[in-house]
Design a protein around this nucleic acid. Structure first.
Lengths: 157, 157
DNA sequence: TGTGAAAACTTATTTAT
DNA sequence: ATAAATAAGTTTTCACA
């Protein structure tokens, strides 16, 4: 799908505030609600807009421990690797999981209510998963910036 | 703010789909729209619901390169440290930025359209920031799981 | 805290340019 | 591709249990 300037500006706005009305967008772009509504519908149908979500304040709901866990595995053959990946992504504490280049193979972002929960995760959950050769945890001391917004430019389109 | 079971279930739903109507939630919980509406309003006012956002498909808009950059700084004194932090969080490519424990001091998640853009970021943006002693990049080869959803349990409340 | 109904507003269609 | 009008549905408020 090809995006024009108006599409890009709509996406910028919706990434900041999904509840903005077609009417508000219309007045910003000097249009009526119909074209805005049609454009948003197309952006959803094309899959560019994947999902609308509410973001919560982790501290206020008592999930204030975030840890990035770097993991290397022993056996990279697809069967054993896939088994490891499946076990990892199923864990509810794992909110993000990546296959990465560098000195470790995988990076997981995990969230806990407290350090005890993190300890239990290491001792009970991770230790029961086979094929792990090395683990290195980076505890988040401060979340300085967190955004889900992707900056759109003409470069990639 | 104290959360009861209904609040927790509302938050679960809104984290998956912010566009669910009060009516749909009401019928799931055998309530009318008014109490649902009032509960959501309180969750917003208390700050537990921080924001509603649209999540985009990074590949479809040509932002398919994600990199985690680990950084250590030379001088940890507050003035020089703060200057570094300010410079980093201002960069539009940096979507997440954390102060972490472990062998590096900071972790940044950055997004690019292509490897050239990443290279330019390293050569032009990062290199112009003072106080950096070491950088280690982990390029994301595959995003296996990405979720903004925080699992709520009674533990942390 | 919750119900039910009414008012205000938004969305989604239709018709026309 | 957009405008204007409209029908359908949702949010929001309010009196009351």
């Amino acid at each position: 799908m090809k995006l024009d300037d108006i599409d890009i500006r709509i996406l910028e706005k919706l990434q900041e505030n999904a509840m903005i009305t077609a009417k508000e967008l219309a007045s910003e772009f000097a249009l009526t609600t119909t074209p805005i509504y049609e454009r948003i519908k197309k952006l959803q149908q094309s899959g560019i807009i994947k999902q609308y979500v509410a973001l919560l304040d982790a501290d206020l709901i008592g999930k204030s421990i975030t840890v990035f866990i770097n993991i290397t595995i022993k056996d990279h053959h697809s069967e054993k690797r896939n088994e490891f990946v499946k076990r990892m992504e199923k864990l509810k504490e794992v909110v993000e999981f990546y296959h990465t280049s560098g000195s470790f193979d995988f990076l997981a972002k995990v969230r806990f209510s407290n350090i005890q929960e993190f300890r239990n995760f290491l001792v009970n959950e991770l230790s029961s998963i086979h094929n792990i050769s090395d683990i290195e945890s980076q505890i988040v001391l401060e979340e300085i910036k967190y955004s889900t917004k992707i900056i759109l430019d003409k470069t990639g389109l």
